[in-house]
Design a binder for these strands. Sequence first.
DNA 1: TTGTACGCGTTATCAA
DNA 2: TTGATAACGCGTACAA
Lengths: 341, 341
Amino acid sequence: MNIYDISKLAGVSTATVSRVINGFDNVKPATREKVLSIIASQGYTPNAFARGLGLNSMKTIGIMCADSSDMYLAKAVYYIEGALRENGYHCILTCTGYERKSQRESMEMLMSQHVDCIILAGSIFIDKDDSNNKYIYKAADSVPIMLLNANLDHKNIYCISCDDSAAMEKATEFLLDNKRNNILYLYNSNSYSATKKLSGYRKAFEKRGLKCNEDYIRYFNGTSKDLEKVCGFVTELADKGLKFNGVVASEDFLAVGALKYAVRKGIKVPKDLEIIGYNNSVLTVCTEPELSSVDNQLETLCTNLVRICIGALSGESMPQKTVFNGELIHRSTSASSRKTK
Amino acid sequence: MNIYDISKLAGVSTATVSRVINGFDNVKPATREKVLSIIASQGYTPNAFARGLGLNSMKTIGIMCADSSDMYLAKAVYYIEGALRENGYHCILTCTGYERKSQRESMEMLMSQHVDCIILAGSIFIDKDDSNNKYIYKAADSVPIMLLNANLDHKNIYCISCDDSAAMEKATEFLLDNKRNNILYLYNSNSYSATKKLSGYRKAFEKRGLKCNEDYIRYFNGTSKDLEKVCGFVTELADKGLKFNGVVASEDFLAVGALKYAVRKGIKVPKDLEIIGYNNSVLTVCTEPELSSVDNQLETLCTNLVRICIGALSGESMPQKTVFNGELIHRSTSASSRKTK
DNA sequence: TTGTACGCGTTATCAA
DNA sequence: TTGATAACGCGTACAA
């Protein structure tokens, strides 16, 4: 069944059928009805490939993320896909992993599929050495590029992010305000957004005229699967004599690992140790006591990302930088007496 | 840049360019080199839409899942997407939600995009009333349908699943073998796979000639976000006088909720209460003590699903039912003395 | 080994 | 208000 068959059955030309399908109003009502009834009775659907060829678009958007099974990215993908679908777009998802080469390949794959736009979920795609970002700039010559939680100044690139630095500063300040001056900072990435978080931690100290001891800033080499290792990592630090009465982590699982250490050692939380994670994931409510965490408003970010994306695709002028604020969510690992902040 | 431009620059016909692009060997090496160098210098890529129109395929596969942010489904999507990409296929992801209507719409959307195959991740898509499954059968007339963790007997429908019934039976048996005769069964879905799990629980009792008390089979109406509610739910059951020394759950988060109850009440786990979850998710290692759980081999399922999918697409004869076994993973909420099973 | 010419199913332009 | 027809760019019989 194609448009020719329909046009013959309806006794009109393919042009008229096309007009009816696409809702043009310069068709005589009687003709329209006739065509519509034939279409319905035959269960005809326009061929998307032919349409794509003519219009140079299949209303498809590419989503790149390092790992869609990562809890945070999974949520991002979910929110983005849903919002795009509501706007009549389909999503090609590609998990790029953490290596630049495969990320570039994914990008090329999406470009060769002629997607209308590419969304980069996570700051892992942006290189500190800007010459390595050419693959993104090149794509931006053809289609709008949306950056979730990352930043890049370039034409046709739109950045939507949470002010992770300010949010992390807030979390750190909260602990400093309670005389927690020895705050362990755990992180596991050096991406743009991870760097911002760390800078927020430092800023909190600076603002108070305190010196930020580098011994307390610790990189953990592993993923959420290595929760046991995180616990071992923190335990080792403590055994080696590092004294800390606060922990701030760039990801919830790191905070959970620290909490594991505390629970096993019988350290009272939050009395003797306060812990704050990041992302406000489901992990925060699995532990006992439940984990305080920074909510970086992912749903809001994604909703707005799609809004800006759709706007840009319709040729409207859209802001290239959009920044939201994070929020500190208090549960049981931060001193509840001060929750009324 | 299109194939005509390349052919002119290379001084050959479009047919020859096409042959070079598609790796046919009936091209003179010198000609091939010439064409390849032009293609490279011009950065030419064949237009995917035109190719799709001619071949009636863009090597794209649709993945339907209720909610890609669900930890289990997120992993499924991740494994499937990766394996498909390795085989040169792209994935259109669509999150359908839990209502039949939107699921049908997603299916239609994918069919209208002319995907080569549709993968249904999760048993939520199959209705107990078979007349409601027509939307799947109809799609199967056009493309192969892959079912992950579900079952449907029909031409062109391939089912890959874990024997959830046997796995749950094994978990229940393990507790019964330790004289845990009062085992609370928590579940939150009535899907195909959820039904199988429950049947496994029942079977374990039957096999031992024990009566399965229906009071112990409890439906929890909520999702993993409602962890606190699960805890309240279990607490209420206990307060109402239900005595149990074992808990088996159809999802890890339900088990985590039960564990929360135990920790708060100071009940010794596993001495006075053994708990076993399902899915072996990251939640199992967040809690303290860590949660025993059933691993239903998701990665194996997905790898094989894609293998069968690719086979079916190449016209090979593939098995319509493939069943793997689950595995009981012991951590600290099941009696460790018997771990040597 | 290479080239010609057509089909794939739309949309859009222009003329009627 | 409608119709004829030219793009869109590729793959591929068939011919040479």
